[in-house]
C-alpha cells in the first residue's frame, strides 16, 4: 500500500524539475522565488500529502468503523461510508464487556515486554561480543545469527512447535516469550552491532586503562551511550512481538491466553460473520500502545538510525 504513490510522486518531481528548470533559465532571477515555491509544493508537499493519506487512511477507516452503528456499517447506499452520522460506543462496549479483550491486552503486553526484555538482553551481549571482543570467527557468528533471521517464521513454527510441546509450554504465554526471540534477537543484534560501531573505540580503551573490566565498560560506558540504539531495538522488538501472528496462532489455543491480533480475528469472526465494528475497535485499541510507545521515543529512534555518538 505505502509503495503505491511513490512512482507518481517521482514522476511529478521529475516533470516539475524539467519544466521549472526551463522556465528559470528563460525568465531570470526574478522568477526564482515563485519557482521555488511551486516547486516545493509539487516536489515536497504534494507527495508528502499523498503518503500521509495512504498511511493514515486505514487508521481513519478503523476509527470511523469503530464508532459506526451496524445500520450505517452495513448500508453504504443510504449512508456516507466515510463518515458517521450517529456515533455509538456499542462496539467498544461489546469488545470490552462481552469478550476477554482486557485479558488479551494484558497477555499481549506481558508477552511483548517479556520477549523484548529477553531479546535485548541477549542481543546486547551478542552484539558487544561480536563488535568489540572480536574473538576468532566473530564475523561468522554474526553472519550465522543473521542467517537465522532469514528462516521464515511460517517454516520455523513447525520445529518450534515440537520444542514447545516437549517443554510443556503449549498454550502458555511462555511459549511465545521464548519463541519470539528467534526472530527478535537477530534483528536487535544487528541493529546494536551497528550502533556499537558508532561509539568511539578509544572510549573503551581509555576505560580499559582506567581500570574497568569488560562488563564494567559495557555497563558504565557502552550501554549509557547506546541508549538511543537500545530504545530503537526495544521499539522494534516490542512492535514485532505485539503484532506477531503465526506463533501466537499456532502455540495458543485457549481463548483467555490469546494475544490481541489473534484473538480479535478468531474470537470476533464467528463463522462467516465479521463483527466489523468490534473488530475495528479491537484493532484500534490494540494499536494504541505501540503508537504511544513511538510517540515518546521517536527522537531516540530517529537519532539511532541516523546519528552516531558525538563527544
Amino acid at each position: 500500500m505505502t509503495d503505491a504513490p511513490k512512482p507518481l510522486s517521482t514522476i511529478n518531481a521529475r516533470v516539475d524539475s524539467e519544466v521549472q528548470g526551463g522556465v528559470t533559465e528563460a525568465e531570470g532571477p526574478q522568477m526564482m522565488s515563485w519557482d521555488s515555491h511551486t516547486r516545493r509544493w509539487v516536489v515536497v508537499y504534494i507527495p508528502l500529502l499523498l503518503f500521509l493519506f495512504v498511511l493514515l487512511f486505514p487508521f481513519y477507516w478503523m476509527g470511523v468503523t469503530t464508532f459506526k452503528p451496524d445500520s450505517e456499517l452495513l448500508d453504504f447506499k443510504n449512508n456516507n461510508p466515510f463518515w458517521v452520522t450517529s456515533p455509538t460506543l456499542a462496539n467498544i462496549k461489546k469488545l470490552l464487556f462481552d469478550t476477554d479483550y482486557g485479558h488479551w491486552l494484558v497477555t499481549t503486553m506481558f508477552v511483548a515486554v517479556g520477549s523484548t526484555f529477553l531479546s535485548i538482553l541477549a542481543s546486547v551481549l551478542a552484539a558487544y561480543a561480536i563488535q568489540r571482543l572480536r574473538f576468532k570467527g566473530s564475523e561468522y557468528v554474526g553472519l550465522a545469527i543473521y542467517a537465522a533471521y532469514l528462516v521464515p517464521p511460517s517454516i520455523l513454527f513447525i520445529p518450534l512447535a515440537q520444542v514447545v510441546f516437549q517443554l510443556g509450554l503449549y498454550d502458555t504465554s511462555f511459549a511465545l516469550i521464548l519463541t519470539y526471540p528467534t526472530f527478535l534477537v537477530p534483528f536487535c543484534t544487528w541493529l546494536l552491532i551497528g550502533y556499537f560501531k558508532s561509539i568511539p573505540y578509544e572510549l573503551e580503551e581509555c576505560a580499559l586503562i582506567d581500570g574497568a573490566s569488560r562488563l564494567q565498560i559495557l555497563r558504565r560506558i557502552t550501554l549509557p551511550l547506546a541508549v538511543p540504539g537500545l530504545i530503537s531495538a526495544g521499539i522494534f522488538a516490542f512492535t514485532l512481538s505485539w503484532n506477531e501472528f503465526i506463533y501466537a496462532l499456532a502455540f495458543i489455543s485457549s481463548t483467555e491466553n490469546k494475544t490481541v491480533p489473534v484473538a480479535i480475528l478468531t474470537e470476533l469472526v464467528s463463522g462467516d460473520v465479521y463483527h466489523w465494528g468490534a473488530l475495528m475497535a479491537g484493532a484500534l485499541l490494540g494499536s494504541l500502545p505501540v503508537a504511544i510507545f513511538y510517540m515518546f521515543f521517536v527522537e531516540y529512534y530517529v537519532s539511532s538510525l541516523t546519528g552516531a555518538v558525538k563527544e
Binding site: E202, L203, E205, C206, A207, I209, D210, I221, E311
Partner: peptide, 19 residues
C-alpha cells in the same frame, strides 16, 4: 592487562566519556 600496568593515557581525540 592495561589496568594493572599503572599507566595513564591521553588519547588524540581525548576520549572523554560524553555522558
Amino acid at each position: 592487562a592495561p589496568k594493572e600496568r599503572d599507566i595513564a593515557m591521553v588519547f588524540q581525540n581525548y576520549a572523554l566519556y560524553p555522558h
